[in-house]
């Protein structure tokens, strides 16, 4: 099979189902007096790949951090996989174990080896036997193409490798949804590519993904919806082609001309 044919075969697998994965209704959040998120409404179906972009301070990171309760929202509802996010600790832990997250600064655990980073949550949260957890971890480390680093510590790896380990660490929990919070912003250009490749592969397998990123090439390639945020609100959302070629709002046009202008 030629590479293009393979790509096509893969994208046919990138089907979006009607099942709702995440539903956000009239969600509001304040930091003290500052209104960071204003009336957010968003429905994400299973298998959807959504890219969230917007200027810094627009609330896009805060939005996805609300989905696994790293930030608390004050008004409105967030329903993840049928479980409503409230202050009930049991629900929060349940949702967190179903939702994987990758951070801008990787946040690997520096005192544990790569393998231990990957097996920790399966062993302690999922109660997977150690042997089995290690097999799962090696499987995902192979998938992100760094099985040979398994016994090293995070500090010995390059940024791109660390981010790929972070992705593998999340995948080991077999999450149904993945959140990416600017996963490539702290990386050198050469390393951005290797991380994006991993994310594209993941998208092609049908993972439900929400990515905060400025990688517009990535958005064009895998997203089926692009969301543009400004001043704590969703200003525009559309299919990538339409979003990039024919942005409706002035604010979006200005933003796109700035980031695509170079």
């Amino acid at each position: 099979m030629s590479q293009t044919a393979e790509k096509e075969a893969n994208s046919s697998a990138m089907q979006v189902s009607d099942e709702v994965a995440i539903e956000i209704r009239n969600m509001n959040k304040w930091y003290g007096d500052f209104h960071v998120l204003k009336d957010i409404n968003l429905t994400v179906n299973r298998g959807e790949r959504i890219v969230v972009c917007g200027p810094s301070g627009s609330g896009k990171s805060t939005l996805i951090r609300c989905i696994n309760r790293l930030e608390e929202h004050q008004k409105g509802d967030i329903i993840v996989d049928g479980t409503e996010l409230s202050s009930d600790l049991k629900n929060i832990d349940k949702i967190r174990s179903e939702v994987g997250m990758c951070f801008q600064h990787f946040n690997l655990f520096p005192h544990l080896t790569i393998l231990e980073n990957c097996t920790l949550a399966p062993i302690w949260v999922r109660k997977t036997p150690k042997k089995e957890a290690e097999e799962i971890a090696m499987h995902f480390l192979e998938k992100v193409k760094i099985p040979e680093q398994a016994l090293k510590y995070p500090g010995q790896l390059s940024g791109g490798q660390q981010q790929r380990v972070a992705i593998a660490r999340s995948l080991c929990m077999k999450p149904r949804i993945m959140l990416f919070d600017e996963p490539t912003s702290a990386l050198d250009p050469e390393m951005i590519a290797e991380v994006l490749d991993t994310m594209i592969e993941l998208a092609e397998e049908g993972m439900t993904m929400i990515c905060v990123t400025h990688e517009m090439g990535f958005a064009r390639k895998v997203a089926n919806r692009v969301i543009f945020m400004d001043a704590g609100q969703i200003v525009e959302q559309n299919e990538p082609e339409e979003f990039f070629n024919n942005p409706k709002s002035e604010r979006t046009q200005l933003f796109l001309s700035q980031i695509l202008g170079h």
């Binding site: 309760r69 790293l70 967190r96 997250m101 951070f103 946040n107 655990f109 005192h111 949550a121």
Partner: peptide, 24 residues
């Protein structure tokens, strides 16, 4: 970020303290 990563993986308070935070 260390607290957040431990939370995001679904570890509860005592697990994240014992396994992630306290050792460091």
């Amino acid at each position: 970020g260390q607290y957040e990563a431990a939370d995001a993986l679904g570890l509860d308070y005592w697990q994240s303290m014992r396994l992630i935070i306290m050792p460091q």
